[in-house]
């Protein structure tokens, strides 16, 4: 298990290279392009009518429910990956354990569904 071994140097190299590339591209446009801001231009785009009040990050609570469900199932996926990679070693025992784990989650999934957490009103 190499964490910061030579394999990851390439990833670091790519991050640095793409960062420079992106920075250069954005930089070129701010140097080459004109800069003539005025009141109307820098107002938030609102289809031509003046904006009445500032935007608050306010949105329907449905998104939070989706977020919570995502955390639950993404954790399930995180447990599944190592199991899947070692599937042949773990054999029948691993299979039964995983199925018990998944069916417990499916139970909560059915509950969430019945409660209407998956409906988008």
């Amino acid at each position: 298990m190499e964490f910061l071994g030579s394999n990851w140097i390439v990833v670091v190299f790519m991050v640095v290279a793409t960062f420079i590339m992106g920075f250069a591209m954005a930089g070129i446009s701010s140097v080459v392009g004109p800069s003539r801001p005025n009141k109307a231009k820098s107002a938030p785009y609102e289809s031509g009518i003046p904006d009445i009040k500032p935007v608050r990050p306010q949105f329907t609570a449905r998104f939070y429910v989706i977020g919570m469900l995502f955390v639950i199932f993404d954790l399930e996926a995180a447990f599944m990956y190592p199991w899947a990679v070692n599937f042949d070693v773990l054999g029948m025992g691993g299979f039964v354990h995983m199925m018990i784990f998944v069916s417990l989650l499916l139970l909560s999934y059915v509950y969430a569904w019945k409660k209407g957490a998956l409906e988008w009103v």
């Binding site: 591209m25 070129i28 446009s29 392009g33 800069s35 820098s42 938030p44 935007v55």
Partner: peptide, 12 residues
């Protein structure tokens, strides 16, 4: 063309 455009940052 995109490079020659104004890099606008809105007030808000």
């Amino acid at each position: 063309k995109l490079m020659g455009k104004e890099d606008l940052i809105p007030e808000a």
